[in-house]
């Protein structure tokens, strides 16, 4: 509604083309601001959650209960010197953080936060998301390659191996759900779920798909127990060893925004996106944002819980898990889901 009136206001004094460009810029700015803040608060959330798991208090000095801790950290990182190694491939080295952060921000544009609140409702939404999220790994590879550091290089190579493998599982588990929805468009996927969330509609295969998705999604974001790429006890800091200041912050923020993206995809595909449970707040406008964020943060918390409980896998075990366990199960699950849809034994309200 509001966007519509801004549109009319802009059209009143500029031509249609200029107006649409201005709108795009405005929307991009809003998204950037929202997600910079979101990234910062995800970092804070992670630190708080980690502290609570580990019998600590977490940040509690800057602002009320540490509310501005990560903001202060970001300011500190901005003010820091950007160092680099001597024989680094300067161009690739400087390019890498932008690859990571831009793909993370691009992926965010397609999510329907609530009814009609979606920047970009593309009809291959899910496909777009999978594609975009795997571009991020190029940034990691470039960063590891460009830094002229062996630890960074090992980290980057591990990242390449990991993403190539786990991309399959992410794609296949989402494909399993696409059989149910019959569409890749995110708004339509949510439309289908008005008859029950897909995890309920698809029951057993949907749950298996969800579990596989969460495992491989955690691996996609390079988080523990799949943090081969950073593996601080093995590689120090992995691919971002040589990055400092804001460039490091880009990698860091991208990791958290990627985590949000993975959780948001799971929310949209498995848990009904912005739909409220049993439609209890259907009549209240913009309540969808609350439900979307609530579901997403529950899944984000689940990923944090993984991280602060499990040991890290070894790099060959990582591949064993994917190729010997997740992928075969996923393929069988895909067939199972197809049979269920064919026999029409889904649960719908």
């Amino acid at each position: 509604m509001k966007i519509l009136s801004i549109n009319e206001w802009l059209l009143s004094f500029m031509p249609a083309g200029a107006a649409s460009i201005t709108e795009m810029v405005l929307i991009a700015l809003i998204y950037l601001t929202v997600f910079a803040v979101l990234g910062l608060y995800l970092v804070l959330l992670e630190r708080k959650v980690a502290a609570w798991f580990q019998l600590r208090l977490g940040p509690n000095r800057v602002g009320y209960k540490g509310m501005f801790q990560t903001l202060a950290d970001a300011l500190k990182l901005v003010s820091k010197e950007l160092t680099g190694t001597v024989k680094a491939d300067k161009f690739l080295y400087n390019l890498a953080p932008y690859f990571v952060i831009i793909t993370a921000l691009m992926a965010l544009s397609v999510f329907p936060f609530t009814e009609n609140l979606q920047a970009f409702d593309i009809n291959i939404g899910l496909f777009f998301l999978i594609a975009i999220s795997s571009i991020g790994v190029i940034g990691i590879l470039l960063g590891g390659w460009g830094s002229n550091n062996k630890f960074a290089l090992i980290g980057a190579m591990r990242s390449g191996v990991q993403t190539i493998s786990y991309e399959l599982s992410v794609g296949l588990s989402l494909l399993t759900m696409v059989i149910l929805t019959g569409s890749l468009q995110l708004s339509e996927i949510i439309e289908v779920q008005k008859n029950g969330w897909l995890i309920v509609q698809g029951h057993i295969p949907a749950m298996i798909a969800f579990m596989i998705y969460m495992i491989s999604g955690t691996a996609e974001t390079n988080r523990a127990p799949f943090d081969m790429v950073e593996a601080e006890s093995e590689l120090g800091a992995g691919y971002h060893t040589e990055y400092s200041g804001m460039k490091f912050a880009y990698f860091f923020l991208a990791e958290f925004i990627n985590m949000f993206i993975i959780a948001a995809i799971a929310t949209t595909v498995f848990f009904g996106g912005w739909l409220s449970p049993f439609g209890i707040t259907e009549s209240i406008p913009f309540m969808g944002i609350f439900w979307f964020l609530a579901k997403t943060f529950v899944l984000v918390f689940l990923m944090m819980w993984f991280r602060w409980t499990f040991p890290r896998l070894r790099v060959d075990q990582l591949l064993t898990l994917e190729w010997k366990y997740l992928l075969p199960i996923n393929l069988v699950n895909l067939v199972l889901m197809a049979v269920i849809v064919w026999l029409n034994i889904t649960i719908q309200f």
Binding site: A50, Q54, R56, A224, D227, S233, W308, F310, P311, R312
Partner: peptide, 16 residues
């Protein structure tokens, strides 16, 4: 040991 294999939380439980 837990920290070296990647489970950071064990460190705090051990130290407690």
């Amino acid at each position: 040991m837990g920290m070296d294999v990647g489970a950071l939380t064990t460190y705090f439980y051990g130290f407690r």
